[in-house]
Design a protein around this nucleic acid. Structure first.
Lengths: 395, 395
DNA sequence: CCGATTTCTGGGAGCGCTCTCAACTGCTCG
DNA sequence: CGAGCAGTTGAGAGCGCTCCCAGAAATCGG
């Protein structure tokens, strides 16, 4: 499988291949003997390690600084307990040699990878196609790199991938994991738990028992509160017959948003609820359904901007004016959509980036965990991030 | 610098010292067993979450299988040159123990990380907000994981980040890098080159000399060809006064698309060219400008779907019907936009995922380098991926 | 001014794995 | 029937780094 087919039907090559002086600089001394391209080579063919500048080791730093490896190590790791004079000497040596610690070696002994896996299941999901994904990643990245941790991204697409990821997580290559977009019976949390890998979940897990599982730490936006806000707004502008287009009801976010709607309309007509699928198309279909069932509706809360855009289209086609005849509120505030619909969408905004950041922070805290033995001992707990209404033109 | 504080006395999380399975006794010939300090076995370094069995090592596998570490290693790495009977015994041991090789240890000696960095500069760019990002990542991920390589994502936002990333790349933690969204004077390629790290760039680099730099391998979509296709289509439906809204002209993709436009309209009126910024707003502004300068235009090629959507809006506001009065063609085929504009956008599609996949493949090939001894061919060269027209309603 | 501390340092044992190389199979041949 | 050989196997030397511990140097009490 790793046979790696060479491009097969490759698109047009951009440049004619020519013999260019390569300085390839492969620093892998062990690589199979690289054939020398005959042409004037700068350094090609160097089989022996000394070829490319061998990476300086702690040993060499110590030597240059005239101290022991141990002391050099101390300096590199903060320099606590090392006399200033020596510390400076070592630092100078580090500088001069351009020394960079070999993480693999360090990891081998500390058992700390300084790396966290970000596992995204179902890349087809909206988490992936929406800007959500990037925003999440950005938040995570910011938090992680502030703590000098790396982010290893793992995308799960099919069953085999689960195996792969499971093996990876078990492999001890990362110190923790951020798990995303899990469907109800996702094996990932269990895998992680089994190998003792700390993790934080993105979005409220929905499987049975999850709620009461103290070990399950997750971050989710306040979907329910957001749903309430949306309906509240519609009511506040005088709408009385408010429908909702939900997301797929096997997702907790959909469920929660619907619950928010129900919170304010506890005995609403079931006919005012239609299930969509988070796509514009689905939103349109749901809207049409709603219109057929309750032509008198004057407000709609769509559980996503994408669905709202589809709904808008259907409403327009049906000759309803927005917001005059029917007011519409979306959810997510995906600017690409909400700011550009006709009219611009009033929607519930969630701070995705913040969620990502929070997840990372929670995980990090969990990792450094045990550092607070005296305190109440409870590790981090789940967090719900706030949502807020962004009023534009549609409601 | 490095967080890595030794944690002083260490957390007192007690881990029963007797936990070790296999012969707690000296399993290695090395004399002088590890001295056990305090009564309560305080695992030096860190405390494992309770319940996490110590990871089995090759040593333990070998012991269980009754072979030497070397043989066990051979089996784990393919089993070449090991008698079938022994191989099976080892495999069984691996299975039983749930052995997973410690990558850090392996990396330490092989100098191979099986990891590739994906560096995304300017996360604010459209690369980031568009679904592009996710698509690229998906393509990369697929290719990489097929070769059993990991993807370490590094987002660069400010100057400090460059330092951080530079250090990381120099740190030898990855075998290669995929560099994205570089602005003209981006230091990343040089950094990578300096430390001898193989890399592939996403998008045609635009700095001086880049073109002739044989070492610079990049993957880009056929922007120029795409521009041609767009204009060609407009011409084919009888449009004679074709304008274009370009992207920021300091980006090669914008330049190339414009060049494509010019290829077919070599002596077009400069008034028919307006610069946008890849946002709907910018597209709208450019459209308005164009309309003011050449009210007679009957076709527009917008260099991005986002800009096209803005243009559509302005056209509508100006009372022009699309496509009757003015035909519009976009670029990118971001479905969220193109499929949902009014009317749906005819646009030039580029296969982003394929680009990502290609980048990864190129890098991988570079890494395994020398894999093509006979063909005196140089390593991989840059690749341009094709674009194609997707006809919807706007032209 | 000397022994008791306290603070620094260096020695050295590993972390888990790969890889070289010598040693040890069986066999085939001469 | 022993030499000659592929084919196998295991011992052992590291890879670069951290950290325990003992010894050295510096500091301090009396």
């Amino acid at each position: 499988m790793s046979q790696h087919q060479p491009t097969g039907a490759g698109p047009s090559a951009a440049q004619p291949s020519g013999g260019a002086p390569s300085s390839g600089g492969s620093r892998h001394a062990r690589a199979a003997g690289r054939p020398v391209p005959g042409a004037a080579g700068s350094d090609p063919g160097r089989s022996e390690p000394p070829g490319a500048a061998p990476r300086p080791t702690l040993e060499s730093v110590a030597e240059l600084a005239g101290v022991s490896r141990a002391t050099a190590s101390r300096v590199v790791n903060g320099g606590a307990g090392v006399r200033a004079s020596l510390r400076e000497k070592v630092q100078r040596a580090v500088e001069e040699l351009g020394y960079v610690p070999n993480l693999a070696a360090r990891t081998l002994v500390t058992r700390r990878n300084h790396a966290v896996a970000v596992v995204v299941a179902e890349p087809e999901s909206r988490l992936f196609s929406d800007p959500f994904f990037a925003q999440h990643l950005r938040g995570i990245s910011r938090e992680l790199s502030a703590a000098d941790n790396q982010m290893v991204l793992l995308l799960v697409e099919d069953q085999d991938d689960y195996q792969r990821v499971g093996r990876y997580l078990a492999g001890g290559h990362v110190d923790g994991a951020l798990l995303f977009s899990l469907h109800h019976s996702d094996p990932l949390p269990d895998m992680a738990r089994r190998v003792g890998l700390p993790f934080v979940i993105g979005g409220r897990p929905g499987w049975p028992g999850a709620e009461s599982d103290r070990e399950l730490v997750y971050v989710d936006s306040d979907n329910r509160g957001g749903g309430r806000i949306a309906v509240q707004h519609l009511q506040s502008i005088g709408r009385t017959t408010i429908a909702t287009i939900t997301g797929p009801l096997d997702q907790t976010s959909s469920l929660d948003r619907l619950d928010g709607y129900r919170d304010l309309l506890p005995d609403g007509d079931p006919d005012l609820i239609a299930e969509g699928d988070f796509t514009p198309d689905g939103g349109g279909r749901a809207m049409a359904e709603l219109l057929a069932r309750r032509p008198d509706l004057d407000g709609v809360f769509a559980a996503s901007d994408a669905m709202a855009s589809g709904a808008l289209r259907v409403l327009r086609a049906a000759g309803r004016r927005v917001p005059e005849d029917v007011a519409v509120v979306g959810f997510d505030d995906v600017e690409q959509i909400s700011a550009w619909t006709e009219p611009p969408l009033t929607t519930v905004r969630q701070d995705i980036e913040d969620m990502g950041r929070l997840m990372a922070r929670l995980l990090l805290r969990r990792l450094s965990g045990a550092a607070e033995p005296a305190t109440g001992r409870r590790g981090p707990t789940s967090v719900i991030t706030p949502t807020r209404l962004v009023v534009r033109g549609s409601a």
